[in-house]
Write a protein that binds this DNA or RNA. Structure first.
Lengths: 263, 263
DNA sequence: CAGTGGTCTAGACCACTGG
DNA sequence: CAGTGGTCTAGACCACTGC
């Protein structure tokens, strides 16, 4: 890395020594740069919302050309980990931005543009410590019986309760999280996780099913038992690809729908 | 385009004459190159599965450097319109590939890897010409009463019927499509559209809801009336962003789920 | 071996932001 | 105005494919 060869390029190991590309898998320089940047992000060297060093700065630091750093940043930006702003710099992505608000909430009003009714009303029903059941433990890569934080909330749009969510979090990284903190925080929950607990969600997987409304749904979503609901189970992952949140949502879909784009 | 300036670069209009970047919106060269390639794709100049000219070829053709063509192709490849194969060339993407089989079918078996049960069994229930209702017309950018092709089919996995789909197509581009053609074709439906009708689907929007099973579902999906089903309404678009297919699916989700990744 | 896409460099200039 | 990201070039060499 610090001793790039002048006669073109060849494979180099992460320690920076150029090596013959014999048995080792070929790894482009920019992938290695990308790895270094990713490690800095994981280590919290640059906080969400902050600017990272300029491309030229990183280029001289790594002993490569600007174009190579650029390609590394390009990929991280396309993965929504960094945000480029011409003339200003490159910034660590954060959930505390308007633009990102709806990347993880796919339920939208039927006819129109989302946000027409303003942000959702959020009501925390409960928040308690409990023990992970087998399925919760598996989802969060914990062991059965490990302590977890469990929260339940209702999201309402235009005064109508639409979403019931049960959320499980591993207790250790979220030490100190209380119902009050959750209830009083203005803004996306993932933004709170970032600022208060240094946990950044970067990706999530959702499994969607159709279910019958239960008595719990009847009570909290004001819907008749037996009515069809969308069941959305989400597992959210951090920089390190660690599962950090399990979320089971029940969505009413009479006036809203889950929107997805296939590309 | 054919007269690039030596002293760096500046804006150039689509006709190829360098212009001062005064009031006109600045458009990078590679975006214009991308536009030219896209137009060739739309015109069917290169068919799905075929190779497009090499980067160097296109570069000399457009009078730009290889890197500029490369950036244009990069974007088209990231949009799944082109596929790069090192050492071989760049190819027009096609639905007749294993890799693309499941980009538009998000329903997967609950526990394991998909395809474990092999490809789905497809049974065409009916295929007829009809008139577009108001909502179908709106979805396909037609006028109410325009002729459409309407098909209904059931997809079964492991012998169990799981999906009921109703499909609407504008009659004009699909002239000659019959139930036999649909029933006898092996492979994805979108591959048939490509090869037989020169219609390539590149993107789709889906709206997902939970609904009650009707008597039709009871009959064709072997599910009790009132059971919850996933309702998936899809509008698929072509190169030109024209809506070309409306598809209303009903998914059983006892053993399968709709899978989605949030990035 | 030639031809393709893939990586990398050095340097130039453009567009945008903010002091 | 300086500093940042964004575009573009010319040329070099590497990795891969297939004849």
């Amino acid at each position: 890395m610090h001793t790039p060869n002048d006669t073109g390029f060849s494979g180099a190991d992460p320690a920076g020594q150029p090596v013959a590309n014999t048995t080792a898998a070929f790894s482009p320089l920019y992938q290695q740069i990308k790895g270094f940047i990713l490690n800095s992000l994981r280590a919290g060297e640059w906080k969400p919302g902050e600017a990272i060093p300029s491309e030229m700065d990183l280029a001289t630091r790594f002993g490569v050309s600007q174009g190579t750093v650029r390609k590394a940043i390009d990929e991280l930006a396309s993965e929504n980990l960094l945000i480029r702003r011409q003339g200003k710099g490159t910034f660590v992505a954060t959930h505390a931005e308007q633009q990102v608000q709806f990347r993880f909430l796919k339920l939208v009003p039927d006819s129109g543009t989302r946000g027409s009714e303003g942000p959702a009303q959020r009501d925390i029903i409960e928040c308690k410590r409990s023990r992970a059941t087998a399925d919760v433990a598996r989802a969060l890569a914990l062991r059965t019986g490990d302590t977890v934080l469990q929260a339940r909330r209702v999201l309402s749009f235009g005064g109508t309760p639409i979403i019931l969510e049960d959320i499980w979090l591993p207790a250790a990284p979220f030490k100190g999280l209380t119902a009050e903190r959750l209830a009083n925080y203005q803004g996306p929950m993932y933004a709170l996780f970032e600022t208060e607990f240094n946990v950044r969600m970067v990706r999530a997987e959702e499994k969607i099913r159709a279910i019958h409304a239960s008595s719990v749904h009847q009570e909290l979503l004001n819907v008749k038992q037996g009515e069809p609901l969308l069941s959305v189970e989400r597992i959210a992952y951090t920089y390190r690809n660690e599962p950090m949140e399990l979320r089971r949502g029940s969505y009413r879909t009479e006036t809203h729908h889950y929107h997805n784009t296939l590309g």
